[in-house]
Structure formats: structure tokens, C-alpha cells
Simulated assay, not measured.
Amino acid sequence: MTFENILVEHEKGIATVTINRPEKLNALNKATIQELHHMLHQLDANENVQVIVITGSGEKAFVAGADIAEFAHFSDKEGAVLAAKGQELLFDFVENMKTPVIAAINGFALGGGLELAMACHFRIASDNAKMGLPEVSLGVIPGYGGTQRLPQLIGKGRAMEMIMTAGMIDAATALQYGLVNHVVPQSELFATYTTIANKIMKNSPVAIAKAIQAVNANFKDGVNGFEVEIQKFGECFATQDFKEGTTAFLEKRKAEFTGK
């Protein structure tokens, strides 16, 4: 597949995926969602990729929203299909990837952009970032998981206020709310996520993948997260990484994990 809307760099275990539509403030259209799905699927299957970072090109925007012109004249049925397909291809897909995915929010993260950031496993923001879900100002609601993930991250009351007012919050407020893990000057964003990625890569990839599954299970209807945790904990005992990790600990040396 030819990629026209994204750029990818892979170095020392870290793959950085940059949404590259600066003339549209990196707005998500169907083609970009499709490209992201294909690339992220490839990266998730690549044993040499241990951490994935998603960011936006330029210094103004992570993703400033969805490409409204693409669906402004949709019917109700077309709108529902748009949301369902987008969640399947990108937002739910990202959340459930076995490779850790970090959102590096380098500017505006609005609408679908904030929804993409929230689907990532955690978020780091530059101090100029602004975040919000402005959909009700357009007569629609967030359709890529925003009404579900925002309350999970910041609580029902704050999420209701953000959604109902269609307003933006700054990076400092996002940090206070727990929407992002870190806020740094834009010039330090790369160094910050690289440092965190390197800490992640010291650990067992197979254990991290199972931890992602266990944590996500708590937010799925009809799933007992504790039971999933017990299952995934047990599965770890059958892995080479468990044998290596425990042996290295007992031998007082650094573990060399293979992800198997």
C-alpha cells in the first residue's frame, strides 16, 4: 500500500508514525484512517518494533479533528457506518494492539484527534497543546469512542462538561485531569517519549502485551477483568521471558528478553 498521508520512522525499537496532512492540520479522513490501520498492523507484527509513537506533523496540530467535508452530507445510516468502521479500523484497533502505543500530542488534538490520542495506551503533551471534543457545536456527538474513553480517563462530570460545552482545555488542565501523563516544552517532546520508550523496552514484550489485555478487560462490558488478569498471569509462566526474567533476578544480572 502506498502511504500518502503518514510518515514512518523506525530506529532502535521505536517506530514513530507521523500523520502528515499539515495543510489540513492533520485532520483524519477515510484514506488516512485506512493508511494508519495498515501501517499499525504491520508495526504490531514486527518483532523489531517494541514501542510505537503517534504524532502529527508541524508544530500546530496533533490531529485537529475529522475531515468534516467528507461526511457533511451523510445520512443517518451512513453516519453510523462511518463511526463503526472508524472504530474498527483505528480507534479500537489501537487500544488493543499488543505493542505499546504512545500519543505525542504536539498541538491541537480535537474531535477525532483527541479520540485517537485517548485510544493510545497513554499520552504525552507539549505545553502548547489544546484538547477538546467540539462535535456538539456541529450538531453531532463524538463518534470514535470519545463519549466512552473520556469519562474513563477523567471522570463522568468533567467529561460531560467538556463534551457539552464543546470547549478546549490546555495542556496543564489536561495534566491535572489525568488526560495526559506528562506535559513538556514542545522542543523536549521527542526526548521525553524516547526516554519513556527506552524504559518500556527494558521489560518483557510478551508480559507487556498481556498486561495491556488485562488492563483493557476492566473496561469491556460483560468481562471480568480480574479473571482475565488471572488467566494472563498464568500464561506468562509458559513464556521464555518469564524463565529469563526470574533466572536473571535470582542470578542478579540484567534480563535479556526475547518477547517469547
Rank of each mutant, 00 (worst) to 15 (best):
G65W: 05
A172V: 12
A80S: 11
V228K: 06
E235T: 04
D76V: 10
T147R: 15
E256G: 14
M162D: 04
P100Q: 06
N48F: 09
G79C: 05
E9L: 07
G113E: 09
A83S: 10
K12T: 04
P185W: 04
I169W: 10
H121E: 00
A217K: 08
L110T: 08
M201C: 08
L43A: 12
D92L: 04
T147L: 15
F226K: 08
D170H: 04
A209F: 00
N128S: 02
F3V: 11
L179S: 06
Q176L: 06
T18N: 04
E59L: 11
G65T: 07
R253F: 08
H182K: 13
E47I: 12
I105Q: 07
D170N: 15
T32R: 05
E188S: 09
F242W: 15
A197L: 06
P205G: 00
E47V: 13
A217H: 07
A104P: 02
E256C: 13
H37I: 11
A191S: 12
A255P: 15
I169G: 09
V228Y: 03
A248R: 01
F237K: 11
Q231D: 09
F257G: 04
I141N: 12
I212F: 01
N218K: 10
F71V: 13
T194N: 13
A166I: 06
L110D: 06
H38R: 15
A31M: 14
G225K: 06
A197F: 02
G155W: 06
I212L: 04
E88V: 02
L40K: 00
N198S: 14
A104M: 00
I54P: 13
N46P: 06
G145K: 00
A119M: 05
F93N: 06
K199I: 14
S137P: 10
A61T: 11
G132R: 12
H73Q: 10
F3W: 11
K252V: 12
V8T: 10
T18V: 14
A103E: 01
I230D: 09
I19N: 03
V184R: 00
G146K: 05
G112F: 00
N106A: 11
D76P: 05
T2S: 14
E95N: 10
C120D: 03
S126N: 13
